[in-house]
Design a protein around this nucleic acid. Sequence first.
DNA 1: GTCTATACAAAGATAGAC
DNA 2: GTCTATCTTTGTATAGAC
Lengths: 198, 198
Amino acid sequence: MPPRLPQPRSNTSEEILDIAEMLIETRGYSAISYQDISEQLGIRKASIHYHFPSKTDLGAAVVERYMQRFEQALAELEGDASKTAMQMFEAYTVPYMEFADTPDRICLCGALAGEILALPAPVRALVQRHFVLHQEWLARLLRRGARSGEFNFPGQPPRMARHVLAALQGALLIKRATGSLLQLSDTIAMIRSQLQSH
Amino acid sequence: MPPRLPQPRSNTSEEILDIAEMLIETRGYSAISYQDISEQLGIRKASIHYHFPSKTDLGAAVVERYMQRFEQALAELEGDASKTAMQMFEAYTVPYMEFADTPDRICLCGALAGEILALPAPVRALVQRHFVLHQEWLARLLRRGARSGEFNFPGQPPRMARHVLAALQGALLIKRATGSLLQLSDTIAMIRSQLQSH
DNA sequence: GTCTATACAAAGATAGAC
DNA sequence: GTCTATCTTTGTATAGAC
């Protein structure tokens, strides 16, 4: 019996999620509407409600899909025995640089964290879970580098993981607000330096 | 002739600004309404429009007042010759800890940065300016500490200033999303350590 | 699955009485 | 300065035809 793959959504559903994700990353959940998506996709508002009855359903679906992609990418990175810890860290920062190369997007969960109290409960719970999993992954990476002697940072891995994630999220946020790419590149440089401090 | 003081606003105007500021820090600009403020203050929506005709006026007034308070506090801190650079840094972090001690607030400009593209242009410009001034102040503090030998961090002060601000803003954001105060306290500890690295 | 039409509530804003 | 009343637009959502 072939492995049970996740049921693929219809093309339209996927396109709705693509547009919704992009719009949330630019304007935030509160500020987007079915009308915005409708205009970009070229179908009517009511048709979107067919795929995602409520905005809560839509928001939750966007975050779930994002988390699945994200966690899979991290798992693959973690499983690549050919990479040093620093190479893994560099690979990990690539998506941040990609976001920073757009004029108006930040990562989905950073955007949602900014309005966490305005989110419907199911969406909020997903965002919280994302941050927990994300930091646990980072802590494992840091521990691996510390054990191998590649990294030499102060404090325990979970503490440094919190610091690294905070700095990257904050850098993306301020980069978009000020338009200066240095905000992210300098932050990454300082983290890299701190990971290798002697 | 006595110095021209800034014209004090009416009590009601100030109360409106107080409530609006608090609500933006918790829910964000897009998610708050004249109705929300009306309910908390116990006057009608129309009365708020008397003080601040449009939501843009209100948002700009909130940020302007915040920036004035903020910049004055930083200037006083900077002018206090009795403090070491590290003592200044510690004093600088106090408001972050105060925000983190609330369950639901982050600093105003961090909250607004999260929805920068959804903001009316005048508000957006103020937020951008705030980040510039804020980082310039931080860079001066770092330079002072580096010159005196108190600090020993990698890179130039403006780069480290970007990193420090990013980490603190990101830590507040994730602290609120996850509820863990460690997010901020660990981040501050890591920054402190990096400022004194040898 | 997509459409038109519509319901319903909320938001931003204004007019005019007091 | 604050009120009631009202206007207009937008947002979320549903009903029912095609």
